[in-house]
């Protein structure tokens, strides 16, 4: 089957600095993929290129065989690494807004997750704690029936119990043909739910392998391998 995301010699320069350099990468459908790398390795740049928030300096990035744009936004559900919602809105308002905006949004799924996490629908976003706001954003993103979910640091700000629920949410809601790309530093927390990991360093691919392959070959966890590869 065609990969859901493909990079061919993908290059992005900011001024004279390369954020990504000749990156070749392809992600299969139906997988949960960890996008890992130290700070400044190009993870968020790659994610922004995939969402057409940035444009390549060279090379190509394709989603579902198409360059990122209006068409790909229909099939990509994206969680940015910062708050992007109107702070003045209430939780139920933003949910209705998403429902209007996206054809593939499921009110039912959103309601179920909000109940499970005890989120007050009448609360204004500006009144929510950082962790609760992150939960709301993730719920909105995971309530869409997408082909590719791109989650930039989805679990950084929430407590360990909510983290478990969120991982469970990701496991429950993605379907077998969808791919979830998760960028995070909390490797050991998500290692068991990943199929595949991608290591980036200074804008280049260091490794792209399945979790069990890494454990078989190296006899160690992805977390340990990461600490060795990127030792400071």
């Amino acid at each position: 089957m065609e990969p859901i995301l493909e990079c061919r010699d993908l290059t992005k320069k900011y001024g004279s600095k390369y954020a990504l350099y000749n990156l070749n990468l392809s992600l299969e459908r139906g997988q949960i993929v960890g996008l890992l790398g130290p700070n400044g390795s190009g993870k968020t740049t790659l994610i922004k290129l995939a969402n057409s928030l940035l444009h390549p300096t060279g090379g190509q990035i394709l989603i579902n065989r198409t360059e990122p744009g209006i068409e790909t936004k229909k099939v990509v559900s994206y969680l940015p690494d910062r708050n992007y919602l109107g702070r003045h809105m209430r939780v139920d308002e933003i949910t209705a807004y998403y429902n209007t905006f996206y054809d593939n949004f499921s009110m039912e799924r959103a309601a179920k997750m909000m109940d499970a996490l005890d989120i007050d629908r009448r609360a204004r976003l500006s009144s929510l704690s950082k962790g609760t706001l992150e939960k709301v954003q993730l719920i909105l993103v995971m309530s869409r029936e997408a082909k590719l979910y791109i989650l930039d640091e989805p679990i950084g700000g929430v407590d360990p119990a909510a983290r478990d629920y969120i991982l469970q949410t990701i496991l429950t809601n993605y379907n077998e043909n969808a791919t979830v790309l998760i960028s995070t530093h909390l490797i050991s927390d998500i290692e068991n739910v990943l199929d595949h990991v991608v290591f980036l360093q200074e804008g280049q691919l260091v490794l792209s392998e399945s979790v069990d392959e890494i454990r078989t070959q190296h006899g160690k966890s992805v977390d340990t391998l990461f600490r060795e590869v990127f030792k400071c």
């Binding site: 949960i32 496991l171 077998e176 068991n192 199929d195 069990d212």
Partner: peptide, 14 residues
């Protein structure tokens, strides 16, 4: 089973 174990369904499938 995958949910119960908190692992990836593809891994459980394997």
């Amino acid at each position: 089973l995958a949910l119960d174990a908190a692992v990836n369904p593809n891994t459980m499938q394997k």
